[in-house]
Amino acid sequence: MSIIQIKGLHKIYNPKKVPVHALNGIDLEITEGEFTAIVGPSGSGKSTLLNMIGGLDSPTEGTVIINGVDVSTLSPKKLIDFRLKNIGFVFQDYSLLPVLTARENVEFIMQLQGRKKEEFKKRAEELLREVGLGDRMDNRPSNLSGGQQQRVAVARALASKPKFILADEPTANLDSVSTSDLLEMMQVLNKEENMTFIFSTHDQRVIDKARRVVSIVDGKVAEDIQVEQEMAQ
């Protein structure tokens, strides 16, 4: 089942001064349960594409339909609410709240959703155990390694029960062991919970694990490769 449909997507920065064509007519469809890597050289437009999919930026032309909703038609307030309910974000620099513990960081997003205390307490613990941080729940980000922080970020992204998770260069700041652990964990979540993951990445280790690789060059889809499952594993 298709959860993201992108049609004729264009993004032009500074259209009146010096126009920069970041995206030049992207058509893409992502179905539930995919483990997709969006790759491409710097300036190719992969981050812009991810921002469009995440509803963080609006297209100059074209549509991004998520779960049947054209996100460009939503008001800013509704768009924030839409992101809260439908999209999980994992950032390159983890972007956890430094004053909250791992547990509180995960709980926070569920509190934003207005969930009940018993529910978010239980789910935060479950998720942190799932990402292998059952014994580090009450540590603040400054007391966690980069890999552990990124795991908390994944748990936070999962906490809101999103339709898919968008990860912008999630392994860029991680060492090889942490990268491997993180990817393994995300693959498990993808398989066992059928969670859809979409990455932008330069990292060959991530590309190697992806089941679909969308290559962006000059704002266009240059290649869209479905990798055999066995090979990806």
Binding site: P76, I80, R83, L84, F89, S95, I109, L112, Q113, R156
Partner: peptide, 16 residues
Amino acid sequence: LREFGVLISIGMQKLR
């Protein structure tokens, strides 16, 4: 500012 941006990204309303 970046933290604010992240919070808005993940779904925190500006009013909040």
